[in-house]
Nucleic acid binder design. Structure first.
Length: 270
DNA sequence: ATGGCGTGGCTGCCACGA
């Protein structure tokens, strides 16, 4: 089972790129961020025509998250991150599908730092920490993926000194991300590639992608049951080189199929 | 150090992103 997270930076402007990538990569479950479309302007029909069930939480101009599945119906368990009823930004959606629980999130950018947007980011991360703690111990596999807008370590940024004053690389944001990992979550890409430079975002300007001047901010976190099934993880850089691309590329994992139970044990041994 | 580019919304710009 292949699960991906992709910040599309505008779902309607990006639809041809998204559909081309879905056909190419054939992901089973996809979380999308930065739809930049109100609820009624989400392109539901072309996505369903591509073979996916879909749920989404839109917002005019900014934010917006969606989830796609081609392995069965999405059973939505939550929209909106709990912990602040006054928060009206569309940044969190959660659903059960195919025996696993998937959370798709778009963590606030937080720039400029310091400032109210930065405060909102840290508050949002504290709420995420609280909520993910309730999901970690579920018996079922849980995948919490999305644009975290956090560069976890120096290995995740092409030139750390350029980012030292940025909210994506602030000590507090990094500590908050580490705090979530300390609950026991596995950063899938880093776990399988401990020393490799892997990026998921490249600025549009200064030929950043051509120079591979990127950062890794799109993450897939796995609880114990999900980590046990982790087979592969990476970033699919192909669409980043296409015309009219997002500035992000999709990050993905592959989970092993659920192990057959009971009567199949014997036949597997033969 | 600054600016560079791109999206969407409502009209010649502005807010926002990372």
């Amino acid at each position: 089972m292949k699960i991906a997270t992709y910040n599309v930076n505008g779902i309607n402007g990006r639809l041809p790129v998204l559909l081309k990538w879905l056909a190419l990569a054939q992901p089973d479950i996809v979380c999308l961020q930065e739809l930049k479309a109100p609820q009624e302007k989400f392109p539901e029909t072309p996505i369903r025509d591509a073979g996916y069930d879909v749920i989404w939480h839109g917002q005019s101009r900014w934010n917006g998250v969606a989830m796609l599945s081609r392995i069965g119906e999405l059973h939505e368990t939550r929209r909106g991150l709990p912990g602040d009823p006054r928060d009206e930004q569309s940044r969190y959606i959660e659903a059960a599908v195919g025996g696993i629980l998937v959370a798709g999130l778009y963590l606030p950018n937080g720039n400029p730092w310091p400032g109210p947007k930065y405060d909102y980011k840290l508050q949002w991360m504290a709420r995420l920490d609280t909520h993910l703690e309730t999901l970690f111990d579920l018996k079922a596999p849980v995948v919490a993926c999305g644009d975290y807008n956090v560069i976890p370590t120096d290995l995740d940024v092409y030139k750390p000194e350029n980012w030292k004053d940025d909210a994506l690389f602030s000590p507090e944001a990094r500590a908050a991300f580490q705090g979530i990992l300390d609950q026991g979550w596995t950063d899938a890409i880093r776990h399988l590639h401990p020393d490799e430079r892997i990026y998921s975002f490249w600025d549009y300007w200064r030929r950043s992608y051509e120079r591979n001047a990127g950062i890794r901010i799109d993450h897939l976190l796995l609880n114990k049951a999900a980590a046990k099934r982790l087979k592969a993880a990476g970033v699919d850089t192909r669409p980043r080189g296409w015309e009219k691309s997002s500035d992000h590329a999709p990050a993905w994992i592959e989970l092993a199929d659920e192990r057959p139970k009971g009567k199949n044990e014997r036949t597997r041994r033969c």
